[in-house]
């Protein structure tokens, strides 16, 4: 099955803010729950998406509060294919962060309080790709599931 040919089972457009991310994740979780994703897989999807969306809010849209993020989720080979679009600032050097594990073998006062995000994304997701198309950032990745992916047809989408 090609990564992008099956129809999206979930499309969300969210406001680029911490509360927008929270509401969007809850809506996506509810949709995927209806598609009978197991709790373990729901957790993986929510974790990766939370990190991706928080990064867009904090970095791509930085000081702006009118940003919009679009999320599309489709079934794919042994997982879910996720696409995330925003029109914020491009990734520095048009390159994804390496996501090295934070160094935690340090004394208590030096323990890291951040920079876990891209390591979490890269640990859970694969096939991660990023392109900038004119003013739009397009990130895509696959989240492997422990169960068969849901069928692509859905009652949650209506033709517009």
């Amino acid at each position: 099955m090609s990564l992008w040919t099956s129809a999206a089972i979930c499309r969300q457009k969210i406001n680029a803010s911490a509360t927008g991310v929270r509401a969007g994740l809850a809506a996506i979780r509810a949709i995927l729950h209806r598609h009978r994703l197991k709790e373990d897989d729901l957790g993986s999807v929510e974790l990766v998406l939370a990190e991706v969306l928080n990064n867009i809010v904090e970095h791509a849209y930085a000081q702006r509060h009118d940003g919009v993020i679009e999320i599309f989720i489709s079934p794919c080979e042994a997982g879910l294919a996720v696409r995330v679009f925003d029109t914020g600032a491009p990734m520095p050097d048009l390159t994804l962060p390496p996501g090295q594990p934070a160094n935690i073998d340090v004394a208590l006062p030096e323990l890291p309080e951040g920079s876990f995000g891209w390591n979490l994304i890269r640990t859970v997701a694969d096939d991660i790709q990023y392109v900038r198309v004119t003013t739009q950032n397009r990130l895509s990745f696959r989240i492997p599931l422990t169960q068969a992916p849901p069928p692509s047809e859905t009652q949650t989408e209506q033709p517009s």
């Binding site: 974790l47 939370a50 990190e51 928080n54 890291p112 309080e113 951040g114 995000g117």
Partner: peptide, 11 residues
């Protein structure tokens, strides 16, 4: 649920 910001806050 916690995200990396929540983890950072616990640290």
């Amino acid at each position: 649920f916690i995200d990396s910001s929540g983890l950072g806050a616990i640290v």
